[in-house]
């Protein structure tokens, strides 16, 4: 395999792996929680990047797949007694199917109309789930703590979800790299740059876009299930939180849209910054302000993100930072 010799392939994976092993080495649950939230961000940002960064479609409501996957898996586990592994597969497949159905309709929209439609879908989904009693309505669902016994008790179950999340994140990075450096990915980037010209050159844009949408919807659902399984409770407001959607876009932009490494750095950086601001007394009340100013600075002055900026300004890094 040629890609196994590419530094651009290994770098993001090694970074995530090293970070992921730190709590294991220190055997520290507090460290695990820190890394857990970083992995959620990295996984969500990298999934979104396949649509946003490679294809150029700005989904503002991408969190709808996180929410739907989480609800699907959570329901199967708590109401139907499914094991977590099977529930994870469904938590990915159901949003992917949803994305396929939605995609053929909304991916015809360009630019801001697409962004608005995705916001609308997320808000409609949240409002619907709030009213939908089989999924617990507005009070959501709780896991019976007994369920953790199937996985060796609560403490063990938390470690298990952590390992699963780490595994899923690495799989996403591999998929992201493979897409980025495939013929399919070249077609997506052609669409991103100029969809009409891409079609004239033979890129079958409708099906390529839909496939990208489906891939980028598959993983957030699994991440969602792991996230809410760990919390043992799921609420419509948490599962379909529009703000998280937009934060995910921020992470992608921060690190560099359209690169494999960008969402890793962006997700980790944003999450870390948020964590630091929240625990620093000086900034706790104004953490949003600091984050907002930082975001604005990046948008205005470094629109290509950290990785994009480095690739542009340091020639030697181009082979390493993909």
């Amino acid at each position: 395999m040629k890609i196994l010799r590419k530094p651009g392939f290994w770098l993001p994976i090694m970074l995530v792996l090293l970070l992921g092993l730190w709590p294991v080495m220190t055997d520290n649950a507090a460290n695990r929680e820190v890394v857990n939230s970083i992995l959620v961000s990295v996984a969500l940002a990298s999934s979104l990047n396949i649509l946003l960064g490679y294809t150029g479609y700005v989904s503002f409501g991408h969190i709808v797949f996180f929410g739907f996957g989480a609800y699907t898996g959570f329901y199967l586990m708590s109401e139907q007694g499914w094991p977590i592994y099977a529930a994870m597969i469904m938590a990915g497949l159901v949003p992917a199917v949803l994305a396929y159905l939605l995609g053929s309709a909304i991916l015809r929209l360009r630019g801001a109309y697409f962004a608005l439609a995705t916001i609308g879908i997320n808000e409609a989904a949240r409002a619907f789930v709030k009213n939908f009693d089989p999924l617990g309505g507005s009070v959501g669902m709780q896991l019976n703590f007994q369920i953790y016994n199937d996985y060796g008790g609560a403490a063990q179950a938390l470690w298990l979800t952590y390992y699963l999340l780490l595994g899923v994140t690495i799989v996403i990075l591999i998929v992201s790299y493979l897409v980025r450096f495939s013929k399919f990915g070249l077609g997506l980037m052609a669409i991103r740059e100029n969809e009409d010209a891409a079609e004239v050159m033979g890129v079958v844009a409708p099906s390529a876009k839909t496939r990208a949408y489906v891939i980028s919807a598959f993983f957030p659902g699994i991440v969602g299930l792991l996230f809410f399984f760990k919390n043992a409770t799921i609420l419509p407001g948490d599962a379909f939180r529009l703000h998280l959607s937009i934060e995910t876009i921020v992470m992608v932009m921060l690190g560099g849209a359209g690169t494999v490494l960008g969402p890793v750095l962006g997700g980790a950086g944003y999450q870390r910054l948020r964590g630091t601001l929240l625990v620093t007394p000086l900034f706790r009340n104004v953490q949003l302000v600091v984050a907002g100013v930082l975001l604005l600075t990046i948008i205005l002055f470094i629109p290509a993100g950290v990785v994009g900026w480095l690739r542009y300004h340091v020639r030697g890094l181009r082979r390493v930072l993909e």
Partner: peptide, 16 residues
């Protein structure tokens, strides 16, 4: 995307 995110950062600043 840039103007969406720029105005969103203003949103964060005001809310903050």
């Amino acid at each position: 995307l840039s103007s969406l995110l720029a105005t969103f950062s203003v949103n964060m600043i005001i809310i903050g």
